[in-house]
């Protein structure tokens, strides 16, 4: 039987990690049931009396648009009003960067794009980052 050099005894082969590295350290935890949405008006868009709200993270992005429309008392004929669900998203953005599809969940958006614990939603009355 081969004698192993001493140095090898200290360098024991590690069993392959089951998941490397452990997920518990990597923030792979579920988002809270409710997440904070911070609204920011762009350009001439009217500002809200209160600009942050907690919203159920199981809802879809469309719920944010509908909520915003209600808060701003928009009518279908107004710029943020109904054109169609896709065109409507062009007036509402995440982190001043892009408009998600109306059926993306707030949960997924929060996981991917939250900034300091909030999902930043910019809104405007003309397409801003089209």
């Amino acid at each position: 039987m081969d004698q192993r050099p001493d140095s090898d005894e200290t360098a024991q082969p590690q069993p392959p990690p089951a998941i490397s590295p452990p997920t518990s350290q990597l923030g792979a935890k579920p988002p809270p049931a409710k997440v904070i949405i911070r609204f920011k008006a762009v350009g001439n868009a009217p500002i809200l009396k209160r600009n942050f709200f907690k919203i159920n993270s199981a809802l879809k992005f469309q719920a944010i648009i509908m909520f915003l429309r209600k808060e701003l008392s928009y009518k279908p004929s107004d710029p943020l009003g109904f054109i169609d669900a896709i065109t409507m998203t062009q007036f509402v953005y995440i982190s001043s960067a892009f408009s998600p599809a109306p059926d993306e969940t707030i949960e997924n958006l929060y996981r991917c794009f939250e900034t300091e614990g909030q999902l930043i939603v910019n809104y405007c009355t003309t397409a801003a980052w089209g």
Binding site: I86, T87, T89, Q90, I94, A97, F98, S99, P100, A101, W129, G130
Partner: peptide, 9 residues
Amino acid sequence: TLYMAQCKE
């Protein structure tokens, strides 16, 4: 519009 928005995301 939707396609470009997805590309941006």
